[in-house]
């Protein structure tokens, strides 16, 4: 029933002498929300960044099966810009919005690989409907936005390439609790509209509640995996990440 979309086997990332990711294997199926949780420095961002082609990594297998073509593509060693064209998109940690460009220009940049002006315009309206605050501020420079608005912009920008696989790196980082709930509600909404999501989070509780399946990373290796509900009730996870 479930058709795989991304298969990673034996992923390793080294930064000089630091072995940041050790033999990580994971699988994402079409339509899922999969989350990677773990402590600060567990290697979550390194995993997601190597999937995106932003860091050098070694892996036995790194296959992406595009729902558009049903073809399996080896994405290992491909540069980030190729990933976007395949339908993978990343809202990076720290938001990385472009401070001197307006909200609208940031979104246009997200649609860089596309040429269908009408489709881009309607997707922009879609992003504005998800995040009405962005519409109010569409002519403002990115640097003038609050942290929460910048996060919305980063997610919206990642949606503008019409990705099949949307990767979100710490979308709740630094947000007020009320905004965290809002962001997770929107993540579920985006998923309900048919996009597969890989979510990296320190906020394990919210992430596990939202996710279909989850992997727990500890010092660069997968220590546990299961459905979101299983891990929410796992005593080890509760002790380590959910405050008992």
């Amino acid at each position: 029933m479930s058709s795989p979309m991304l298969k990673i086997d034996g992923l390793n990332v080294n930064y000089g002498a630091i072995h940041a990711v050790r033999d990580v294997s994971l699988e994402i199926n079409r339509g899922e929300i999969v989350t990677l949780i773990g402590a600060n420095g567990a290697g979550k961002s390194s995993v997601i960044r190597s999937i995106m082609g932003l860091v050098k990594s070694r892996a036995n297998e790194m296959t992406y099966i595009s729902p558009r073509t049903n073809k399996a593509v080896n994405i290992a060693g491909k540069p980030a810009e190729e990933h976007v064209k395949l339908g993978i998109s990343l809202s990076p940690e720290g938001r990385r919005i472009l401070p001197q460009l307006t909200v609208e220009e940031n979104l246009q940049l997200g649609a860089y690989i596309r040429d269908d002006a009408d489709g881009i315009a309607s997707d922009m309206e879609y992003v504005y409907s998800l995040f009405p605050r962005l519409k109010e501020r569409h002519k403002q420079k990115g640097s003038t936005l609050s942290g929460g608005e910048q996060q919305m912009l980063a997610v919206g920008r990642a949606l503008m390439s019409r990705p099949d696989l949307l990767m979100l790196d710490e979308p709740s980082l630094g947000l007020a609790p009320i905004l965290v709930d809002e962001v997770f509600a929107i993540i579920r909404e985006i998923n309900a509209q048919g996009r597969t999501i890989l979510l990296v989070e320190q906020n394990a509780f919210a992430a596990l509640k939202a996710a279909h399946r989850a992997y727990v990373l500890e010092v660069g290796a997968v220590s546990l995996s299961g459905t979101g509900a299983e891990l929410l009730n796992n005593p080890k996870v509760r002790a380590a990440y959910l405050g008992g």
């Binding site: 980030a80 064209k85 990385r96 860089y112």
Partner: peptide
């Protein structure tokens, strides 16, 4: 402003 973020946009 940010080469890597721009690369992520394709």
């Amino acid at each position: 402003f940010d080469i890597e973020a721009t690369r992520m946009m394709g």
